[in-house]
């Protein structure tokens, strides 16, 4: 059995670090882990994703449609874009803060993040949905870089990372993050209302 997680967002949002923390926590527990990352041209403002697979009997780093237990979305439209990967009844944790593509600004149209959240709420195939008010979270925590930890903490505290517990994530974070940022990251990991 394996736990399959899709992390997605826009290039530069920190999906890779979040994916590495879960991987590191898995390694400490002696679990096998594989992941696939977007690196290269698409990183420059394009849609990016990480596929993360924890457990045995995993051959490919990639996840197929309907196979993900959890989607962690750093941007609402990117969360929706990845929905086909979610298995029926799977969980979604998403930021509500839209990142506007340059094309939208040029066209004069503003895509609407709220519309994406309403759509997610309307789906009965999503077993559990957690929407994080990112602007508020960033303000409360006091760092614009905290979003990935808020989302990851929401996932671990809700028990959505398979065999990986919230404590495992905190331990992994302590190993990967500079000491002076640990306290802020713990606050971020424990921020969201689950």
């Amino acid at each position: 059995m394996s736990t399959n997680i899709v992390l997605c967002g826009v290039g530069g949002q920190g999906t890779v670090l979040a994916s590495k923390l879960v991987a590191s926590a898995s390694m400490s527990k002696g679990l096998n882990v594989m992941s696939a990352e977007t690196i290269g041209m698409a990183q420059k403002g394009g849609s990016v994703f990480s596929h993360l697979r924890i457990g045995d009997d995993v051959y490919s780093p990639m996840i197929a449609r309907g196979e993900a237990d959890l989607i962690i979305g750093f941007e609402p439209s990117e969360t929706v874009r990845m929905l086909p990967f979610l298995k029926k009844g799977g969980a979604v944790i998403t930021s509500d803060r839209p990142v506007m593509p340059v094309t939208a600004a040029l066209g004069g149209s503003t895509y609407n993040g709220g519309e994406m959240i309403s759509y997610l709420k309307s789906l009965d195939t999503v077993g559990r949905l957690v929407v994080v008010d990112t602007d508020k979270a960033i303000e409360d925590i006091g760092s614009p870089k905290a979003m990935n930890m808020v989302l990851l903490g929401a996932a671990s505290r809700a028990g959505l990372l398979g065999d990986i517990t919230h404590e495992d994530i905190i331990e992994a974070m302590k190993k990967k993050v500079k000491p002076r940022f640990v306290e802020m990251n713990i606050r971020a990991l424990e921020y969201a209302d689950i």
Binding site: K44, G45, G66, E67, L86, K87, Y111
Partner: peptide, 22 residues
Amino acid sequence: NEGTSTELNDAPELPVRPPVLC
């Protein structure tokens, strides 16, 4: 693996994100 995934039938239009100069 058929019928196991969420279909994006009535999803709002998704923004296109071509890579751009930073």
